[in-house]
Design a protein around this nucleic acid. Structure first.
Length: 942
DNA sequence: ACCGCCGGGTGCC
DNA sequence: ACCGCCGGGTGCC
C-alpha cells in the first residue's frame, strides 16, 4: 500500500506538466514608454501584467522588465483581446522585446501564449474576435525561453554542454538529475576550516569543508549564477536583463547533506565562527569565577541582564512563554549532570530590566565594517527607537574600528517542532563550556513578542507553525520585524509548497544570510525547488515567472541546455554529500556495521483462531469491494481490516473496539459524522503514514471530507477558498463543502486507559514472549547494551510495559503524544550512560523527527513492519548514525503466515521502486489506483 | 466650403 | 513622433 492515498491531481501539487503547451506567438506593441522608468535590452524578457483598475482602460495590460519596473502598456486594442484571456487564466502570456532598447515612445513585443490544451480553442477564438491570429513559434530564438539559449554564447557562468535539440526521455531526465550533485571537486567545496574557539567540538573533515564553504558564501561577494559584467553593466544571460547595480549573490545557500552528516553541528559552527568579516560571534568568554558571579546576581550589566538561569533554577514571573523549554534536559532532567553551556534566557518584558545599551561582553569583539545594509531602522522598533539609538552610540563608541553601522546579531533558526529539542541539545553539547551563547526559544503561547528582545539574542529558535501562525497576526509578526543576521530553515523542504502559509511566512523574513538545511533537496520535481530558491532571494528567480521561463519550463520540456542551467544553479548554491561520499579518499562517515535480522514468530492456537476468523470476515468484505470495483471508495474500511490483522499479529488486545460498520449511505447527519470520525481515526492510527495530498506533509490538524479523504484543515480550506464556488475533493473530485468537513475530536489520551486496563488483566502474546526472550538473553550477554523497542501501536508499547516491569528492566518511553518536554527528558534519560539508566526505550515508529538521536542503543527490536520501508530506515538511523560506536543489530519480528509477511514482500517491491525514485512525472491517477488495488489484494491474499 | 488642403498641437493606458 | 490624429484656419489662378 502506498504511503498516501494521493493521486496525481491535487491542487497546489499540480506537476510540471501543467506548464502548458505553446499555442503560438503574436507580435504586438508596447506604448507609453516615455512615462515610465523601466528600461529593456534588445531581446530582453518582459512580464505582462493585468491592471484592471487602470482608470483609463479596464483592459489595461502593463509591461514590466525583469526587475519589475514598468516599461509601458500593451496597446489598447491588443490589451482588449488579452484582458479576458489573462483574467480567466486561459493562457500565460509571456513577452520578449526583440529590439527597442533605444525606442522612446513605443516598441514591439513578441508574445508567446502557453496554456492547457483544452483552453487553446477559447484563446484562439478570443483573439480572433479582436482581429488577431497567432503565428507558429519562431524558429530557434525566442518562443519564451530567451533568445540566446541555443546559441551557447550565454557567457562564462553558464557553460552547459551543447545538447542536440531533442526532448529527453524520462529515463535520461532521471539520470541527468542524478548528476546534479555529483560534482564535488570544485575547490571551494573541499577547502577546510576550523570552527571558532567557542565551538567546543572538533569537526570532522567533511564538516570542516562545509564550514569553509558556508563561511566563504557568507563573506565573499561573487556574482550570482547567470550574471556577468559587460561594459559597466551587470547582465543576466538568461533574461537579457541588465542593470548598473551589482546583483548580489546569496550570502547563503542550501546545505543538502544526507541526514546524519552533521548539518546541525556545522550550522552551529557557522553561527559561532562567522559573525562578520570572518570574525567569530562575539560571545562572552566566561571564566568560571566570573561565571559564578553572574549567575549569582541579577546585576543589570550581566550578559543575561539578570535573566539568566545559570543555576538551573526555574525563574520567576513573566517568563512562562518559554516555560516548556525551560525544563529542557539541560535544566531539569535529573539524569543529567549540569553543564554550563548554552543558556536560554528569559525575559520579563521589553527592556523592563537593565539598560538595553549595556552589553559589555559583546562589545569586545563587535564591529568593523559590514554589509552595506544600514542600521536599525527605527521603523522596525517604533516604540523603542530612542533606546535603539542609544544602543548604537554605545556600541559605536567601543568599536574597534570606526564603523557606525549596526550589525544585526541574531540568527533565526526555523525548524519542525520535532527537532526543536535536538537543536537545544546540540547547542548544549557543542558550545564550548567557557562561552555563553544566548538562545531564545520562541515557542509557546506566551512567547515574548517584543522584537527588540529577539533581535539582541545570539540565536532564536522557532518552528514553522509558530512562524506561520504569527505571520497572520494583526500587529505583524515579531519574527518579521527583526532584521536577522542570518536565517536558517532546517528541514527546509518544509516550504516546498508555495501556497502554504508557512512558506509565505518564511519567504518574507528579513535577513541577508539565508540558509536552507535539507536532506531531501529535490523530492518530486523541479517545481519543488522554487520556494527554496525564492527564499534565497537569488535574482531573478524569486519571481516565479522568471523561474518558470528560464529554468522550470526548459527543464521540463527537455529544451537544450535546460538541465545545464539547473545544474549550474544548484551547484553554485548547494553543498551535498551523501553517506557514501568521500573526503580525501575516505568515506565521509565510517559507521559501524548494521545488521537486520528477521525473526519469525508463530502464533499460539488461540491467537491463530482469532486471526483467521477476523481475516475470513475481512477477506469477504474486501472481495466484495473488489468485485464491485469499489475498493478505493472503501479505502478506510480496507485499511481497517488490514489494521486489525496487523494488530492481531502483535496482541489480540489491540483490536477490541472495531465494528466500524461497513456502511450503508442512508444515515442521519450525526451517524454520518460519527462514521467519518471513526474512519479518520482508522486512517490516522493505521500507521500507514498518510500524508496530506495538498501539502504533501504529514497531517496537521486533520479533517475528513464527506468522501472520506483526510487532509490538513488549513490545506483543504485553502482549496475550497481557491475553487469557489464549486470546490472538488483533490483526491476523488467529489463535491467538497466546508460545512461537511469533520474535524478530529481532540486527541483522547488513549494511553493512560490502556495502561490501567493492562494493570488488571494483562496477558502476554506470542510476539511479546519473543521480545522478552530476546531482551532477557541480551541482558544476560551484555548488561550494558541498550535497545529500542519500536512499534506503530502505542497501545502495544503500553502492553509491553507490563513484562518489562515484571522482569525489572528499566525502561523509558517516547511516543508522539508526549509533550516536547517529556520527550526531551526521555531521550536524555535513555542516552545517559549512568549506571541504572534505562536500557530499553519504547519508541513509537514515527515519534520524533530526523534529528532524534538515540545512539545509546545498539539493538533495535521492530515489533511490527511498517507500510513504508523508509519509515523503518529512518527509525533505524536514529541509533545507527554519527556517534554510534557499536555495531547495530536490528531484529524484525514477523508473524508467520500473516499479513506481516505480505507486508515484507511489498516493502521489498517498494525498495526496488524507490531505487529508481526521482519521479519526473507523477504516475497517473489510474496507475496509482491500480498499484493500490494490487497491494490490497496481495496483503489480504485475494 | 455640408468640401480639401495646410500646418500647428499633440501624443499610453 | 522623421508618425497619425485632431481640429482650426482657410479657400481661383
Amino acid at each position: 500500500m502506498a504511503d498516501t492515498p494521493s493521486v496525481g491531481d491535487a491542487p497546489g501539487a499540480e506537476d510540471d506538466t501543467d506548464l502548458g503547451v505553446l499555442y503560438g506567438t503574436l507580435r504586438g506593441s508596447v506604448v507609453g514608454l516615455r512615462y515610465y522608468t523601466g528600461i529593456v535590452n534588445n531581446n530582453e524578457m518582459v512580464a505582462l501584467q493585468r491592471e484592471p483598475n487602470n482608470p483609463y482602460d479596464k483592459n489595461a495590460v502593463k509591461v514590466n522588465n525583469v526587475n519589475g519596473d514598468q516599461v509601458g502598456h500593451i496597446k489598447k486594442e491588443l490589451a482588449a483581446a488579452l484582458a479576458g484571456i489573462m483574467d480567466n487564466k486561459l493562457a500565460l502570456v509571456e513577452g520578449v522585446v526583440p529590439y527597442g532598447a533605444k525606442n522612446v515612445f513605443t516598441m514591439p513585443v513578441q508574445m508567446s501564449f502557453w496554456g492547457k490544451e483544452e483552453n487553446k480553442e477559447a484563446v484562439l477564438d478570443q483573439l480572433k474576435r479582436h482581429g488577431f491570429k497567432l503565428a507558429p513559434p519562431l524558429k530557434g530564438s525566442e518562443c519564451g525561453f530567451g533568445s540566446k539559449w541555443i546559441s551557447g554564447k550565454a557567457g562564462p557562468s553558464y557553460r552547459a554542454p551543447f545538447h542536440a535539440p531533442v526532448q529527453l526521455t524520462p529515463e535520461q531526465l532521471i539520470s541527468e538529475f542524478d548528476k546534479l550533485f555529483e560534482d564535488l571537486k570544485e575547490d571551494d567545496k573541499t577547502r577546510e576550516m576550523e570552527g571558532a574557539e567557542a565551538l567546543g567540538t572538533l569537526l570532522l573533515p567533511h564538516q570542516k569543508q562545509a564550514l569553509a564553504w558556508m563561511v566563504s558564501r557568507e563573506n565573499r561577494n561573487n556574482l550570482p549564477p547567470f550574471w556577468e559584467e559587460r561594459g559597466g553593466f551587470y547582465y543576466n544571460t538568461l533574461t537579457n536583463f541588465a542593470e548598473k547595480m551589482r546583483p548580489q549573490d546569496v550570502p547563503g545557500g542550501i546545505l543538502a547533506d544526507d541526514m546524519g552528516l552533521g548539518k546541525t553541528l556545522t550550522t552551529i559552527a557557522l553561527i559561532l565562527t562567522n559573525f562578520q568579516d570572518g570574525k567569530p560571534l562575539p560571545v562572552g568568554k566566561i571564566t568560571s569565577e566570573r561565571f559564578r558571579q553572574e549567575s549569582g546576581t541579577n546585576s543589570t550589566s550581566n550578559v543575561g541582564r539578570g535573566l539568566c538561569e545559570d543555576s538551573g533554577k526555574v525563574m520567576g514571573p513573566g517568563a512562562s512563554g518559554i516555560k516548556k523549554f525551560d525544563t529542557t534536559p539541560l535544566k531539569t532532567s535529573s539524569c543529567l549532570p549540569k553543564r554550563g553551556k548554552a543558556k536560554k534566557r528569559r525575559h520579563s518584558g521589553s527592556g523592563s530590566s537593565g539598560q538595553p545599551g549595556e552589553r559589555p561582553l559583546r562589545q569586545a569583539g563587535t564591529a568593523s565594517c559590514v554589509e552595506e545594509d544600514t542600521g536599525f531602522a527605527s521603523v522596525l522598533f517604533p516604540s523603542s527607537a530612542c533606546l535603539k539609538r542609544q544602543t548604537k552610540r554605545k556600541v559605536t563608541a567601543t568599536a574597534e574600528n570606526n564603523c557606525s553601522v549596526d550589525v544585526p546579531r541574531a540568527t533565526l533558526i526555523v525548524c519542525p517542532l520535532s527537532v526543536l529539542s535536538n537543536w537545544i541539545d546540540q547547542f548544549n553539547q557543542h558550545v564550548h563550556r567557557d562561552f555563553h551563547v544566548n538562545i531564545y526559544v520562541y515557542y509557546g503561547s506566551d512567547r515574548n513578542k517584543d522584537p527588540s528582545v529577539l533581535a539582541e539574542q545570539d540565536v532564536v529558535l522557532t518552528t514553522y507553525s509558530i512562524l506561520a501562525t504569527d505571520y497572520g497576526i494583526r500587529d505583524g509578526s515579531p519574527l518579521h520585524k527583526v532584521r536577522w543576521l542570518r536565517i536558517v530553515l532546517d528541514e527546509g523542504h518544509t516550504i516546498r509548497n508555495p501556497g502554504a502559509q508557512q512558506t509565505r511566512a518564511a519567504l518574507s523574513l528579513e535577513g541577508r544570510r539565508r540558509w536552507v538545511l535539507t536532506g531531501t533537496p529535490i523530492q518530486n520535481s523541479v517545481k519543488d525547488l522554487w520556494s527554496l530558491i525564492s527564499f534565497l532571494k537569488l535574482k531573478p528567480f524569486s519571481d516565479q515567472e522568471w523561474w518558470r521561463r528560464t529554468i522550470q519550463r526548459p527543464v521540463v520540456l527537455g529544451a537544450p541546455g535546460g538541465l545545464g542551467r539547473l545544474q549550474c544553479l544548484i551547484r553554485s548554491i548547494t553543498l551535498r554529500r551523501t553517506k557514501t561520499s568521500k573526503v580525501k579518499g575516505k568515506p565521509v562517515l565510517e559507521l559501524p556495521e548494521r545488521k537486520v535480522l528477521i525473526q519469525h514468530v508463530t502464533l499460539t492456537e488461540e491467537e491463530r483462531r482469532i486471526y483467521e476468523s477476523v481475516k475470513k470476515e475481512g477477506k469477504a468484505a474486501v472481495s466484495r469491494f473488489l468485485s464491485e470495483g469499489t475498493v478505493l471508495a472503501h479505502y478506510a474500511d480496507v485499511l481497517g481490516v488490514l489494521l486489525r490483522l496487523r494488530q492481531l499479529c502483535c496482541h489480540p488486545r489491540l483490536c477490541i473496539d472495531t465494528a466500524s460498520g461497513l456502511s450503508a449511505d442512508n444515515k442521519t447527519p450525526e451517524e454520518l459524522r460519527e462514521t467519518l470520525v471513526s474512519k479518520m481515526k482508522l486512517v490516522l492510527s493505521s500507521g500507514s503514514d498518510e500524508e496530506c495530498a495538498v501539502c504533501l506533509e504529514s497531517l496537521t490538524c486533520p479533517v475528513i471530507t464527506r468522501c472520506a479523504h483526510v487532509f490538513c484543515k488549513p490545506c483543504i480550506f485553502e482549496v475550497i477558498r481557491g475553487e469557489q464556488p464549486k470546490a472538488k475533493c483533490p483526491l476523488c473530485r467529489n463535491e467538497l463543502r466546508a460545512e461537511d468537513l469533520v474535524q478530529c475530536p481532540q486527541e483522547e489520551e488513549t494511553d493512560p486507559s490502556d495502561g490501567k486496563k493492562s494493570d488488571q488483566e494483562w496477558t502476554p502474546s506470542s510476539k511479546i514472549n519473543a521480545l522478552m526472550h530476546a531482551l532477557i538473553e541480551l541482558q544476560r550477554d551484555d548488561p550494558t547494551a541498550k535497545c529500542l523497542v519500536v512499534s506503530q501501536f502505542t497501545a502495544f508499547l503500553s502492553l509491553i510495559e507490563n513484562p518489562l516491569k515484571e522482569s525489572g528492566i528499566a525502561f523509558t518511553r517516547l511516543d508522539g503524544s508526549m509533550a516536547q518536554k517529556k520527550r526531551a527528558e526521555a531521550v536524555q534519560c535513555f542516552q545517559s550512560s549512568r549506571a541504572g539508566s534505562p536500557t530499553v526505550m519504547l519508541l513509537s515508529l514515527k515519534a520524533g523527527g530526523v534529528g532524534l538521536n538515540l545512539t545509546a542503543a545498539s539493538r533495535v527490536f521492530l515489533m511490527d513492519p511498517a507500510w513504508n520501508p523508509a519509515a523503518e530506515e529512518q527509525c533505524f538511523d536514529r541509533c545507527h548514525r554519527l556517534g554510534q560506536n557499536r555495531g547495530v543489530v536490528i531484529t524484525k519480528f514477523i508473524v508467520k503466515d500473516s499479513v506481516e509477511e505480505n507486508m515484507l514482500r511489498i516493502q521489498n517491491k517498494k525498495r526496488e521502486l524507490a531505487a529508481g525514485a526521482f519521479a519526473t512525472t507523477k504516475p497517473s491517477a489510474k496507475e496509482v489506483k491500480q498499484t493500490k488495488i494490487n497491494e490490497i489484494k496481495a496483503l489480504i491474499d485475494v
